Simulated assay, not measured.
Amino acid sequence: MALRHFLVGTGAVLALCSATGMVQAEVVLQTTRVIVPAGLAEATLRMKNEGEQASLVQAWVDAGEGSQQDVPFVLTPTLFRLGPGSSQSVRIVYTGEPLPTGKETLFWLNVLDVPPKSTLPGDRLQVAVRSRIKLLFRPEGLPARGDALTWVVAAGKSGRSVLRVLNTSPYVHNFGSITYRAGGREFDAGMGYVLPDEDAVFPLPPEASSFHSGDVTYVEIDDYGGTKAKDAVARSQ
């Protein structure tokens, strides 16, 4: 899809930026993640143009940054004009290709907001902003969420300590922030997620390397974008 790449015209240069950067998207998504339940096999993403000009919007799904893997979803529409103050829903339909039935599968939903071409003379920089959120396929019959995360402190490849979290649940766990406390100090371990039946690593600052165990407070993000702080013990690996 051509609009995923930088476009260069005779009167303007269109650069692609992430919505998490300094440039703010005019087209705002109404959710932070989309869940596709296997029983329904579809979901809807709603967005609104909060800017003062119309935008050209493109939406697509991928299996990860740079992945060429085919994805089992069809979006309707995928390319459309969205006027100022207007809203649009994009329908996301699961096409039925086999996916794991005992755990969630993570995909990524992208929305590219392309501004109108400048009518001013001379070369102008136009910025296309991409919003990127999680798209989760959730099979039927998964057990209730429980306390399925185990945290440990381990040595990283660079010699610095890392927090490693093991997820034995069938759900993707999303963290808005992770704080490690040891020796009367607090260390920021960033944010991120861990996939079902896998582990994830979060690097700690160099000054945390002298502490081999401690406590963790992580802020978990739920299906609706709500947050809840939880505490755990991180033992030495």
Rank of each mutant, 00 (worst) to 15 (best):
P121L: 09
C17H: 15
P170A: 08
R33G: 09
L79W: 07
V152Y: 00
T217K: 08
L135N: 02
N174W: 10
V194I: 01
P116E: 07
R46V: 11
F6N: 14
A229N: 10
E207Y: 02
D113G: 06
P116M: 03
T179F: 02
S209W: 06
Y224L: 14
V36F: 03
Y218E: 05
E26N: 13
S86T: 12
A189V: 00
R164G: 03
T105Y: 05
Q53R: 15
L16A: 13
A155D: 15
L75K: 05
G184F: 01
A54I: 06
G122C: 05
P84Y: 03
L40Y: 11
W60P: 09
D70E: 15
A38Y: 03
T101G: 11
E140P: 07
R138H: 03
P205W: 04
V71W: 07
E104P: 04
T119N: 13
A144F: 08
D147V: 02
V13W: 11
M1T: 13
D188L: 06
M191T: 12
L204H: 02
S87R: 12
R46E: 13
L112K: 10
S236F: 02
V93Y: 10
L7N: 11
D199E: 12
T150Q: 14
E52A: 15
E50D: 10
L14G: 03
L142V: 04
T179S: 11
G51S: 05
T119F: 10
P196T: 02
D62F: 07
S236C: 08
T31Y: 06
N174C: 11
Y193Q: 11
A200F: 01
S177N: 10
T119H: 11
C17W: 09
V111T: 11
V90Q: 04
N174H: 12
S169I: 02
R124W: 09
A182K: 01
D188K: 07
P115S: 05
F202R: 00
V34D: 02
D215I: 01
L163K: 00
P72G: 07
A15Y: 11
P205G: 09
A41L: 09
V111D: 03
P116Y: 02
E26W: 07
G83T: 04
Y180F: 12
D113E: 06
Q237E: 15
D215F: 04
D62I: 05
A25P: 10
D113I: 03
S131P: 04
E198H: 10
T101V: 12
N49D: 08
T44K: 14
S169Y: 02
S210Y: 08
A189S: 02
R235F: 09
V172M: 03
A144G: 13
V152E: 08
D123M: 15
A19D: 13
Q237T: 12
T168F: 00
V172H: 06
S18P: 07
S177P: 01
L7I: 12
F187I: 01
V129D: 01
G146C: 06
Q237P: 09
Y193T: 04
P98M: 06
V36T: 04
V127D: 02
V13F: 13
V61N: 09
